[in-house]
Design a protein around this nucleic acid. Structure first.
Lengths: 343, 343
DNA sequence: TTCATTTGATAAAAGGTTTTATCAAAGAGT
DNA sequence: ACTCTTTGATAAAACCTTTTATCAAATGAA
């Protein structure tokens, strides 16, 4: 059976009537503003509690012109980045009573516009755009909106606010960790050179390991990692002692390839990944030491910035790079070596 | 620089003023109701278009008592199931102007209650609860709400509406596929027996492969798949010719284990997974034939049911099991065998 | 010309809340 | 007894839209 009519939510008018005061007094009492006798206030509060009164956010928003609502538009079909980021966003917003609409566009422009229109009609206080890479523009134009926009794991236009992982810092962490573990001959296997993130990380790698250090660009796939190892083993006489991979998936292929060829990790070669995509990095053999991009923190920061913007407070502009962190598992081990032992 | 004051959105009053008609006439013209002269209507429509008028959904909802808004509450921290499901939900709702709030609870009861309260305050028309397994109750009580609730990939209380993948059908597809490929000795390696999904699939397996067929319960991890293969190889004289795995991750461990022992897939053994979690199943060697749970379709159906409920239409009750589908990749091959060749 | 009907448009109420202005009563000071 | 201030409460306006009731003018029929 279907309950035919929803029980009507009780309203401020109900409270006022039950407490035998006017609407204004009830409102003032509940919000602790205006001049209202202490015992009247307490009576109102008590009755409101008793009948379970909760103010209608729609009516409130209509008046205050703040809907306590934001939209998150995502390009990510897979959800790998979106859910951590958006739950980070929500975490900081929910305590301020702000809820987030999630709109997955699947890269479909029509869908994106439909969602955007619905969001604007619903008077969202702001929009957060998230994607899966940093060097691709949103499928819709968000520059002329009359609500603030923040970009998370995506590049906004000039003078907008974008929060992205600091690829350079992540790469630096990875290489430093390998070097501290005594690696002297580090190889970098990564994704397509067309990706900004890949180029950024490769630059850092070359800075730290010498400008002629070999970077193997390829795909963001396990298969490429595997194939790259095949190439390395057939081309080089001596194995590198450390491999810095551009993603956990590539690292997985690398681990797999090395095992196929009887090379032991980390005994013979140390391997480090990038992403800390736990479904991959936790399950490899051995479990993968990798770089975490702190997606939730990106969400936090984006949410915080949005909060400030909706209050009209100023907010930092430009691309804000947030530090990564090193997750130590078992694919890197310290190589005993005279010249790297602590002084 | 921060734009100090947001340009005020233009309202019905602006349209009315510009068209030199009353509010009511403007409203009637735009909605095509009431009696309004054709040329007046066209003037209003033209002007509305020119100044980019869009009705304020908040004001509309306040009056109509339908917010065109629903809440999705999810238990899933990882996003693997939530994003496909919720984007399925949105896909069917967006064309009706309905947007969805996404609330990730991370299993935190306080957070769940906070989100729920915010949703109710915002007058959502309904709530969809999604989880990652079927036999666990939501962290919050959704039974006494005065909005409709639909469960997706989660079990609701008696007489509620839940959409879940049909585990039995999926298992049947998997086993039938192996059998059609000529497998006669099929092994089932799956997750913990405490999970309903694992038990359901195992039941089907036993029904089709004989009641004494061996089921290996373990963990939902790659490691378990790997370990299980080790046990099988040391305990049995003869290898099975087909392995039905309870998840893609287990299947991956199985593939890995088999390769380590020099067993070739699919030449020596066919392997089939469950989930079609593409990041896993696409990247295995060989790519994994598996069962897809049609998560997006679950989202579609949940969204559709929600739509009906918000309209007061009756909706099917109980646990509604939606068919799975077979995704053919390369880990199953037809075994030439006299008694299974087509007649 | 008169009455009844149709047409086109508008005023007003409603939805639930907050805020500003108003007002009566009570108290204080002379 | 008079004014001045404070206290406590309320009416009304506002937010923006939709719907119902109302109304004047125009049209039709007799």
């Amino acid at each position: 059976m279907i309950k035919p009519i929803q029980h009507r939510r009780c309203t401020l008018r109900d409270v006022a009537k039950a407490a035998e005061v006017s609407l204004s007094t009830a409102s003032n009492a509940l919000n602790g503003v205006g001049r209202v006798n202490v015992e009247t206030r307490e009576r109102v509060l008590r009755i409101a509690r008793e009948i379970g009164f909760r103010p209608n956010a729609l009516a409130r928003s209509l008046l205050s012109r703040r809907s306590l609502t934001i939209g998150i538009i995502t390009d990510d079909t897979y959800g790998r980045l979106t859910l951590p980021i958006s739950s980070g966003v929500s975490e900081v917003l929910v305590d301020h009573g702000v809820s987030a609409f999630l709109c997955a566009t699947s890269g479909d422009k029509r869908l994106a516009e439909l969602h955007l229109q619905a969001l604007l009609d619903k008077q969202v206080d702001g929009i957060i755009f998230t994607a899966t890479r940093l060097d691709v523009q949103p499928p819709i134009d968000l520059t002329a909106l009359n609500v603030p926009v923040v970009y998370a794991f995506a590049a906004g236009p000039f003078l907008s606010t974008s929060f992205v992982p600091d690829d350079a810092h992540g790469a630096m962490l990875a290489i430093a960790h390998l070097q501290e573990a005594g690696c002297r001959d580090i190889l970098h296997i990564t994704g397509p050179e067309s990706w900004l993130a890949a180029r950024n990380r490769a630059d850092i790698y070359r800075n730290h390991c010498g400008p002629s250090s070999p970077v193997m660009f390829g795909a963001w796939s396990e298969e490429w990692g595997h194939e790259a190892i095949g190439r390395v083993l057939s081309a080089r006489k001596k194995l590198p002692d450390g491999i810095f991979c551009g993603s956990d998936e590539i690292a997985r292929g690398v681990l797999d390839g090395l095992r196929d060829h009887g090379v032991s990790v980390p005994a013979d070669v140390s391997v480090i990944g990038f992403d800390n995509w736990e479904v991959v990095s936790r399950q490899t053999r051995p479990p993968l030491t990798t770089i975490d991009m702190e997606l939730k923190e990106i969400g936090h920061r984006a949410g915080l910035a949005m909060l400030q913007l909706t209050r009209g407070e100023p907010v930092e502009r430009g691309v804000i790079r947030l530090p990564c962190s090193l997750v130590r598992r078992e694919s890197v081990i310290s190589r005993a070596s005279a010249d790297t032992s602590p002084v």
